[in-house]
Write a protein that binds this DNA or RNA. Structure first.
Lengths: 180, 180
DNA sequence: ATCCCCATGTAATTTGTTACATGATTGA
DNA sequence: TCAATCATGTAACAAATTACATGGGGAT
């Protein structure tokens, strides 16, 4: 499933513009699927080319026309087919963990700075989750609630783990420079 | 930090071939940083071009020469500089969670199949972790132990969350086809 | 026989990121 | 006055994935 499909899925919730979708990527989808304008706008063009969405141009003053996209029946069929994949992946690419693997080559303060930065990022996610909850999710489908809970659970686990184990990394580097 | 840098980091542990590094990506690094031959071999070529590694070709019969790469002092400096970045990212791209967001459009058995598949993937990671632990990690640097523990903690959190919350997704789809 | 392990690599393709390009309105 | 929000997009670039290309040795 790529950005195209996720955009299409978002449109099942009602018509939206590329700008709207970007906001949704930043808020609710941000913690597990990122996308910027550079992939969203081309995705919407592609979906329109394939008649998976229709586009209504709403004239505005002082701004470009707002383009409201709506999912079509063909689009819905396409989405349903994409959702039939029972083996969707869950990929992690962590420069953070890769860095930590080589902590023994780093200076103590540097390691702790990396850890602090990671904790602050986790804190931002937790804040995001709180905001979502405060805006009310009673009308949300169960799947979306499940995903939010998943994000919270993983964030909490990461935070706890880092706080409880960072002390083990508070040592000096093993500077074995040209000693091979 | 990209595949090049991670390969270079792996070589601080001793000389290795592209094939060796691939195995390491599959085992210890697999749960947070994936790479295939298509990125490893070009990465090693690039590192050699920049004198960050040296290459010793070991003739073999019936197989291509084994190319043993060693990190150089320049390479070590390059790596150290890369590790100074205090803001390494930790990216997740989850088609699994994206799919679950649209669970209300899916059939019950399909949802449960996706969940089962995810649990089986998590099981594979847990097995991987067990294998690593059985092979002994007493000589591992603290950072590597930290990373392994991190993987275990996150995997456990995901598994628990899915098992405890999957029942909420055991409902029928809200098949609102062309009712806009 | 057949499959997996060893061992290298390239080329085409896919995919997404970043920088560029424009510009009015609104609130602090 | 300054930053943020609204609102669109393209083009160049970076990076990794997938498929292709080759082939002997050993285990089942």
């Amino acid at each position: 499933m790529d950005v195209k499909t996720v955009c299409l899925g978002m449109l099942t919730d009602g018509p939206a513009s590329g700008y709207d979708l970007k906001k949704e990527f930043e808020s609710s989808f941000g913690h597990f699927f990122a996308a910027g304008y550079g992939s969203i706008y081309p995705a919407l063009s592609w979906l329109a080319d394939h008649q998976y969405v229709s586009c209504e141009e709403i004239p505005q003053e002082g701004k470009p026309d707002r383009k409201l996209y709506r999912i079509t029946e063909e689009g819905r069929q396409f989405l349903l087919k994409a959702l039939k994949n029972t083996k969707p992946c869950h990929k992690i690419r962590s420069e953070f963990l890769a860095t930590m693997c080589f902590a023994h080559l780093m200076e103590r303060e540097n390691i702790q700075a990396v850890l602090d930065h990671r904790l602050s990022e986790i804190g931002r996610y937790k804040e995001l989750f709180r905001n979502i909850e405060q805006e009310g999710m009673s009308d949300w489908p169960e799947g979306a609630k499940f995903v939010l809970g998943f994000g919270k659970a993983v964030a909490a686990a990461m935070e706890t783990y880092i706080k409880e184990n960072r002390h083990a990394l508070a040592t000096e580097p093993t500077a074995k420079t040209a000693a091979g």
